[in-house]
């Protein structure tokens, strides 16, 4: 009977970011970022523009050198072994720039050559993103922003990479193509691939990710699972009643009334919303507005905690 070494039992994270710091002169790019991303998970990297998401990704991909700290991918230091690691990585950069003089097909085939294998997903992705034969025979300089983005996504996924790193990949995609992207990411996840997904849209991160890291001003504020994030997140609910109501009737745990007049109440709810909904249901409701939580509100939740 063959023996299994201790190393084989231990599950190493796919991405290990340790004390990653990047200074640009005197200004801070990112500071002391620590992350561990495990096999088969979709990790959302959420933050506003200029928070340090792209800098972190560029450091992870060896496009920048850290001031301090290190990045390991597949348990290998990226700075030393990038050429071996990148064989199994698909990357969609934040500022996607393609070779404008190539046609779509030429670009995809050129990118595929580095993997020395057949582009397993190319045809399927081309169909899924509705890129026609005529589109792919045109030079990239004639493409719209959305078409370039689709091409960038296809080149990242076509070779069936083990790790997919995407910097705001849904930028420029219409809602239908965004859903195509989300579906494929779920499909890749189901087959054991690991995905690092940066975004400044809370809703898309909530929709597809297992865990999320919130980054702002170059610092990682928190790492949460999506259920835990929802639990802690403050959400706003605005209710207009047909008759006057008393605010005292809505004295519910984890719920604050932030605005009120005779027929209308605005609540801030943290965590479970069911108790409030049950209370509201006792009255005749004229209108109910439950907007998407803003990124700023979400950050405030964690800043308050800190």
């Amino acid at each position: 009977m063959s023996t299994i070494s201790k190393k084989e039992y231990r599950v190493e994270p796919i991405i290990q970011v340790s004390h990653l710091t990047k200074y640009f002169g005197k200004s801070i790019g990112i500071e002391d970022i620590n992350l561990e991303i495990h096999k088969g998970e979709i990790f959302g990297f959420l933050g506003p523009n200029g928070a340090g998401k792209s800098t972190t990704i560029r450091l992870m991909l060896n496009l920048m050198r850290p001031s301090f700290g290190s990045v390991k991918i597949f348990n290998r230091n990226v700075q030393k072994h990038y050429d071996k690691i990148f064989n199994t990585i698909g990357n969609v950069p934040g500022e996607l720039r393609l070779y404008e003089e190539l046609t779509g097909y030429n670009f995809l085939n050129y990118m595929n050559k580095f993997s020395h294998q057949e582009p397993k997903w190319q045809k399927e992705l081309i169909n899924a993103f509705h890129l026609s034969h005529a589109d792919l025979n045109k030079k990239i300089k004639h493409y719209s922003h959305g078409m370039k983005q689709k091409l960038g996504i296809i080149q990242a996924l076509q070779d069936d990479p083990e790790l997919i790193i995407m910097d705001e990949p849904s930028e420029g995609l219409d809602p239908i193509n965004k859903n195509v992207l989300y579906d494929y990411l779920q499909k890749f996840k189901a087959s054991g691939k690991t995905i690092f997904f940066s975004s400044h849209y809370l809703t898309e991160v909530e929709k597809i990710c297992d865990r999320v890291g919130l980054v702002k001003n170059g610092k990682l504020i928190t790492k949460e699972t999506i259920p835990s994030l929802k639990e802690k997140m403050i959400r706003r609910l605005e209710v207009t009643f047909t008759q006057p109501v008393l605010a005292d009737d809505f004295d519910i745990q984890s719920t604050d009334i932030v605005e009120q007049d005779s027929h209308r109440l605005v609540f801030n709810v943290r965590g479970n919303i069911n108790l409030l909904l049950k209370q509201i249901a006792k009255y005749d409701v004229k209108n109910l507005v439950f907007p998407e939580p803003s990124l700023e509100d979400t950050f405030m939740t964690f800043y308050e905690k800190q």
């Binding site: 560029r58 991909l61 060896n62 496009l63 050429d83 071996k84 990148f86 064989n87 990585i89 990357n91 950069p93 500022e95 996607l96 720039r97 393609l98 070779y99 990118m111 580095f114 993997s115 960038g152 080149q155």
Partner: peptide
Amino acid sequence: KTFDILLTKP
């Protein structure tokens, strides 16, 4: 920034 794709290949 075309190296952002090319230099993340092996």
